[in-house]
Design a protein around this nucleic acid. Structure first.
Lengths: 109, 109
DNA sequence: TTGTCATATGAACAATTGCTCATATGTTCA
DNA sequence: TGAACATATGAGCAATTGTTCATATGACAA
């Protein structure tokens, strides 16, 4: 007979958030799981930047950056403002910085 | 003439970590970017569990769980110990908890 | 050894994803 | 209005990824 997990399962189940929450958590981290997006967020760490400046910094296409900024914006990780033809992006809150900092800690522990 | 970014680019470049670090950061978060792995880490939040208990908890194949545990272990996010035929997995450090907690904060702010 | 339980692993397939290219939208200025 | 600049967007393609299935490894007991 395979061994029994009833006790631990009941205990853990009681502490697990709803499936939907865990799904949302995964979706959020998925966004951090791409080097280009990490670079963009890091670039915005101190100051806002326009799209073409980010593209130049990362040596990538304006289109590629724009696509990624859309993803970041949809997740509320960046915000933007328009000034004439130019659109400036910035981090939308401090969670971005703390999440990246925690990841960095894990890597360099 | 397109507008000039020299000043901001020089400033930001000075603050950017090496490409390799940013790549590693992305790779780390990529691991958090999957619901199954998030669930596994959450399940191990309080106590160690054996592979088949995790599989039963998540209602998934033993094989699928084993594959994911391998990924988590390679990233130093979980550790394991053997007790007879059974192998128990646990979180390997507290960064896992804090990273998940930060993500949770962002979602529920 | 043989059988059984617990776990690991490799190949294969479907689904997702990030970039490119072409083009569209929106703003400013002449 | 027309031209130029800044950004956004849709389709398509190559690469990555998570699961399944079959099977291998490892431990224990008879």
């Amino acid at each position: 007979m395979p061994h029994n997990h009833e006790a631990i399962l009941n205990h853990v189940k009681a502490d697990m958030p709803a499936d939907e929450v865990l799904q949302d958590l995964g979706d959020l981290f998925k966004i951090f799981g791409d080097t280009t997006r990490i670079k963009i967020m890091y670039a915005l760490h101190e100051d806002e930047m326009c799209v073409c400046a980010i593209a130049e910094l990362l040596n990538m296409t304006q289109s590629a950056i724009s696509h990624q900024l859309k993803v970041l914006k949809a997740a509320n990780l960046v915000a933007s403002r328009r000034d004439g033809k130019t659109i400036y992006y910035r981090l939308s809150d401090d969670h971005v910085k703390s999440i990246i900092a925690q990841g960095y800690d894990h890597l360099t522990e």
